[in-house]
Design a protein around this nucleic acid. Structure first.
Lengths: 342, 342
DNA sequence: TACATTTGTTTCAACGTTTGAACAAAAATA
DNA sequence: TATTTTTGTTCAAACGTTGAAACAAATGTA
């Protein structure tokens, strides 16, 4: 119960009658230390249940071996699987991961950044909150020379490494698929266009419609936070149009789910009356009825690449490596909600 | 780009012609430092963009102001909202939170514990992996004198603070409700009985059945990991029984969802042929059709209490406070999946 | 034998902050 | 005026680890 005093390098040194510095070197497998001493040190370390003091070594080395990850919300398969992968990669290299949730709030995001900087993380991997427009806090990270990698929700202006999917292409694929199903009036439940990824999805949607000679109407494009309630509200709006859409492409699965609910409440046949496609391929998409078509973003890959890119930055002291923008191919998962012609 | 040298307390001291120690005291609002000096220090600190070196102060003070949280998986509303609350409470007190996911794996859990100990966290809040049976690593935490709080998935034998709901009572409430709906053969898709909470849910289920004079049959109780696929597999089994149940109580929402899928695939009317109740009140429960009845666990409260209890432990140096086992009241949310008599 | 090299270890300062003790000056008390 | 108390600061050591430089001993080379 009582906090026993911890074993230090010095204790080991005393037992063996050598200096702490020799012990330190033995533990770090320094080439100039004899195998005999190394073995002895290891033995005593084990006997005394020695645990290195990370704080002391971090201070001395000027490196905390801590990495911060900022995400909007862990509560989605997309982000939680990215985190899992990031942890895998970084843990293997001796780094620990601190996760901070912004809850889509700019203020919380700033606080998290401050907290991470204060904790002296060696690097930060982040996906920006929906709310975030000002980039001052991210500039702060950069100005301190701390490696920063963005994923999914990034900003070009920041000029930092980025991993994400080709959002423009995603929209193209979705529209192409819906057109193939015979849809002619396709609405878009969009994310806020001030966020790059959502802007690109909107662009892709518009360009694809144009390519297929379909109408582009402002009433068919509604921006929101893409939560379930947003999907519900917007779908209601869409149903009130005198000229209803025959397909809905939502830039997020939760919004798509909300839309689906409303359609079911209105006894609309999905996909035959209105087809529906979501985004992110959250696990629930395959579970609802009808199952939801969605865009798979290969989250594990994103996590892996983000982590590896960060490691490279850290190892090269954030220099010499040219800017890395990695855009992965999305994959459209076609399910019942958009398959009219069986 | 280049890592500029960071401002230290010494730099401020030099500018003002006082000692680092005075600066330190000024920054910490020491009573013996004059207001004039404090103001001056604060001003210069701002000018030089001084950021305290957390590592140094942590080393000196023997306190990292880091708290570890171990959860099976962030990918559920239950855990992610608990984390959110824990962060709220701890951040407000100057602590940072390191989150580690065990992914329900004992091995990963052990690794996480080691990593947290290595990072010198001041305390750990944890919910155990399904797999975990041996408690050696948790004992390790205890033996180091680091405060440990368990929530949801805890173990009585560990003799540490605990926050969770009354699982036994939850089952009682569920069964009572199902009986009121006229159900007479109630199956239980259970969690593994080696985990305390699931054992208690099973006990509550059995005792309630007995209380109402209903049959307790081993074929109606199946233990699993409670994932969607487990729910599907078990539901299939249950449907193959020559005497099918008229209600299913699943100890987790995902398992319930899997069961629901299978029933829908078999054109079974839920709730009229078979009623269904889940556990955790995940957001999707209100979104599927029919909406899923479930047990609300008041996750925010759990998070809040866990964090506050940990703070108390840390502040009192893990002594003097008597053991704290807090059992919250569950709440049964009755939805369409179990409402036979409209 | 004389000298250079290698090997294994010690010495010492440093990382940036904190803290108790010491001290001088100022203010309060007698 | 002499003495105590208070106020504001400095001093010095410490937290545990690391790494460059110094050093001695052992080994190798000419």
């Amino acid at each position: 119960m009582a906090n026993k005093k911890k074993t230090t390098i010095k204790d080991i040194a005393n037992v063996l009658g050598i200096t702490p510095s020799a012990v330190s070197k033995a533990l770090n497998d320094h080439p100039r230390i004899s195998d005999k001493t190394k073995a002895a040190v290891l033995q005593i370390a084990k006997n005394l249940d020695y645990q290195p003091n990370h704080l002391a070594s971090a201070l001395r080395k000027g490196k905390s071996n801590l990495v911060g990850v900022i995400i909007p919300k862990a509560n989605s398969h997309f982000f939680s699987s990215i985190i899992e992968k990031i942890e895998d990669v970084l843990n293997a290299k001796g780094y620990n991961v601190i996760i901070a949730q912004s809850n889509e709030s700019y203020e919380k995001e700033c606080k998290s950044i401050d907290a991470l900087l204060y904790t002296q993380v060696d690097g930060i991997i982040a996906s920006m909150a929906n709310e975030t427009v000002k980039l001052d806090y991210y500039e702060k990270i950069k100005s301190k020379g701390i490696p920063l990698i963005l994923f999914d929700r990034g900003e070009n202006d920041l000029n930092v490494d980025y991993v994400g999917i080709d959002d423009y292409l995603s929209s193209q694929m979705v529209i192409e698929h819906l057109v193939a199903q015979g849809c002619k009036r396709i609405a878009h439940i969009a994310g806020f266009s001030h966020t790059r990824i959502y802007k690109n999805r909107i662009r892709g949607y518009r360009d694809a419609l144009e390519k297929f000679g379909l109408p582009i109407e402002d009433s068919l494009i509604v921006e929101s936070n893409l939560r379930i309630e947003d999907g519900r509200k917007i779908m209601k709006q869409l149903l009130e149009l005198k000229d209803r859409p025959d397909a809905v492409y939502a830039a997020g699965d939760y919004a798509a789910l909300g839309a689906l609910q409303i359609m079911q409440e209105h006894n609309i046949d999905v996909p035959n009356d209105i087809a529906l496609v979501g985004f992110s391929n959250e696990p629930f998409t395959s579970l609802v009825t009808p199952s939801l078509s969605s865009v798979e973003q290969h989250s594990e890959q994103i996590g892996q690449i983000a982590a590896e890119t960060l490691l490279k930055r850290i190892e090269t002291n954030n220099k010499n490596v040219s800017l890395n923008k990695l855009i992965l191919q999305p994959e459209l998962i076609k399910r019942a909600s958009s398959r009219k012609l069986q």
